[in-house]
Design a protein around this nucleic acid. Structure first.
Lengths: 212, 212
DNA sequence: TTCCAATATGTACTAAGTACATAATTTGTG
DNA sequence: CACAAATTATGTACTTAGTACATATTGGAA
């Protein structure tokens, strides 16, 4: 029979990526709210229901990568050097991501399109905020389970949200810097400077907890 | 020509409040997503288009108070004792609101319904997050204009978002505390303790700026 | 082949929100 | 008071996202 036993999943993945690729292109070209699901289906040459089969929400075609981010944050907290605090480990992660040219923090012309597409749509902004909250929840759980505390620990909840607030603002400000200077190095420096500033505050707020 | 009629605006306000009252009641009873705009219009005895005339979004009938909050925060930063830093003034505001039994931070059985209605609906949660971001923007502007800086000052942007993150988590955690203990005093103490903790971090992060 | 299960797609519907037109009401002015 | 102008309420028709459910199609195994 077939040499590849999972042709089925490959086809499904191809369909999925075909849809999200064409949708993302259209969103960047014309703005999220000026593209209908019907148009996406036509452009991707699939039925409308196939689109909703793969992506329950229209926004999901655009944000198709957030599971990776969660995994990275979880792994950073879990697999850190035990002599390093979780908060410090996350600060170092930010520096490593920038150094390694991770696509999440590249601040280039390409990523400008991404940010600007989000900024251009209330729906996408809302989804971005929801994802941010979901990530904060992941970080909360990672912090508490490493410290042998309840997942409802208020300090962890606060720490995770302060962290995400810092990273979000740093990310937006770095893009702002890039937009003005067209200088990736400068934008990266701005990003890391703000992450470090936020981390100072976060450590001060978490003094006396296992997170700082 | 009309200068300022009175009956007219009073009637309009009455229509508006009639809609938002009946809508809020229905949302709390049955959940936001299980009430349609048509039902609200019928229950408030107005036409469907009248509802959308007053409230462009369904969520606006529920969140009908956020302008007050903005004004309070703006005023607190603007009209503070010049010897008090903006961040400290906002911390004191939190304490004053609790002391004065402000409905925003009352942590009673009544306010439980409010929180739980929000938690029960993705749409309401999304709107709550959007309002939080709008308020952060207001605080950013208030901070910068008091310090003679550009409204785009990254430090102010960070400060405002850390502040809102702290208050939001403190608010949620205080409600959690109330839910478990049914003890308003305990919930208020939890709220203020976390606001104070966050403020310590915020001041540390803002060291060297005019905001701390 | 033949059957099963995963996948793609069609049909019909609900409900929010928008555009635009019209009716009803309030109010200033002659 | 009557009437014109503006404001407010409402109706009609439409668009679009999203859901429920049925059907068709396709890959893989026996």
């Amino acid at each position: 029979m077939s040499i590849q036993p999972d042709r089925r999943s490959r086809k499904r993945l191809a369909t999925r990526e075909g849809i999200s690729d064409v949708a993302t292109r259209l969103f960047k070209e014309r703005g999220f709210d000026r593209v209908t699901v019907d148009e996406i289906a036509a452009a991707a040459d699939v039925g409308r229901m196939t689109v909703f089969n793969h992506f329950p929400r229209k926004e999901d075609m655009f944000f198709d990568r957030d599971e990776e981010i969660r995994e990275t944050l979880r792994g950073t907290v879990r697999q850190r050097d035990p002599r390093t605090s979780p908060i410090e480990a996350l600060r170092l992660l930010a520096h490593r991501l920038v150094e390694e040219q991770s696509p999440y923090v590249e601040f280039s012309t390409a990523s400008q399109g991404f940010i600007e597409t989000i900024e251009g749509s209330e729906t996408l902004k809302a989804r971005a905020r929801a994802i941010r909250d979901e990530i904060a929840q992941v970080v909360t759980v990672a912090l508490t389970e490493g410290a042998g505390r309840e997942p409802a620990d208020p300090a962890a909840h606060l720490a995770a949200n302060l962290l995400l607030a810092t990273w979000t603002v740093a990310y937006i400000q770095a893009h702002q810097t890039f937009r003005q200077s067209r200088d990736t190095a400068k934008a990266k420096a701005a990003f890391l400077a703000m992450v470090d500033k936020g981390t100072i505050g976060l450590k001060a707020a978490m003094a006396g907890t296992p997170y700082a």
